[in-house]
Nucleic acid binder design. Structure first.
Lengths: 140, 140
DNA sequence: GTTCGTGCAAACGATTTGCATTACT
DNA sequence: AGTAATGCAAATCGTTTGCACGAAC
């Protein structure tokens, strides 16, 4: 979680990519707000770079294996750091809050799937919907 | 899973909705192909109804609680019957094919989550992305 | 001096919506 | 008759792309 803009830029350099003003700003934005759910649009409003440039930079960072994106429900794709562990969520249908999916349960699932089907889930962000403990208690 | 077009139409009737030619055809199409991954576009090509009508009908069926949709990766939303068990999928990032998530692994996950957090996942369709056995074999 | 990256605008696919017409009930 | 549903086209949203210009190496 201690990622800096420099780390991201180094990833680009090591791929032989040019370091531009736009990329510096985008990387700084990602480093600064990586705890949030970043979207191309929200990054673009925070920097002086066209939205297409943001998309292109995110694509490059994704190819470099340093960021990933996933689609949650409708809205825009959400981008996050590839090594960010906290990306499996339980989202409550009633109160809307998200809590982390226990790592042990998640890993057991992944292991079970791979053993049974040969399919290897990527470490991508994914979310399950349902009812949280509190909301279940508060009602029938 | 022995759903018929009549069942779907009855759901509409019970909501006070009118039975039109388009809706009959759409319901027949859904009943006939509910085992597949239905999209608005694929339904629309199979019936004499405009795509917007298909969307509107799917919306109504969804409000009636008889169908659900989910977004798998990029492409269009996938619609399926709400009471259909095969909702949990493994979608390959490379070849795009979806296979079922083993029920046992899924149930173990749900049990683990509930035991540890009190959260109860709903039975909604959800998908994990990754690489299928074949695609993993076909490359590094 | 190349090549790559950028902005812009236009293209795109999926979905939604406004509106006049048609058809259920 | 009255209201809801349809088709069509245009609008929308997120994302991608073509292209000419400008900047990094």
């Amino acid at each position: 979680m201690h990622i800096t803009a420099e780390t991201l830029l180094d990833a680009l350099r090591s791929q032989g990519m040019r370091i531009t003003d736009a990329r510096v700003q985008i990387c700084e934005e990602i480093a600064a707000r990586h705890a949030e759910h970043l979207t191309a649009a929200s990054i673009s409003t925070g920097v002086e770079a066209n939205e297409s440039t943001v998309y292109r930079t995110l694509e490059v960072l994704e190819e470099a294996g340093i960021v990933e994106h996933s689609h949650m429900g409708h809205g825009p794709a959400v981008y996050h750091l590839a090594d960010d562990a906290e990306h499996h969520h339980l989202v409550c249908e009633r109160c809307g809050r998200a809590e982390a999916l226990p790592a042990a349960a998640y890993e057991a699932l992944v292991a079970g799937i791979t053993a049974e089907t040969g399919f290897v889930p990527s470490s991508r962000h994914f979310a399950m919907t349902g009812l949280c403990k509190e909301c279940r208690a508060t009602n029938a």
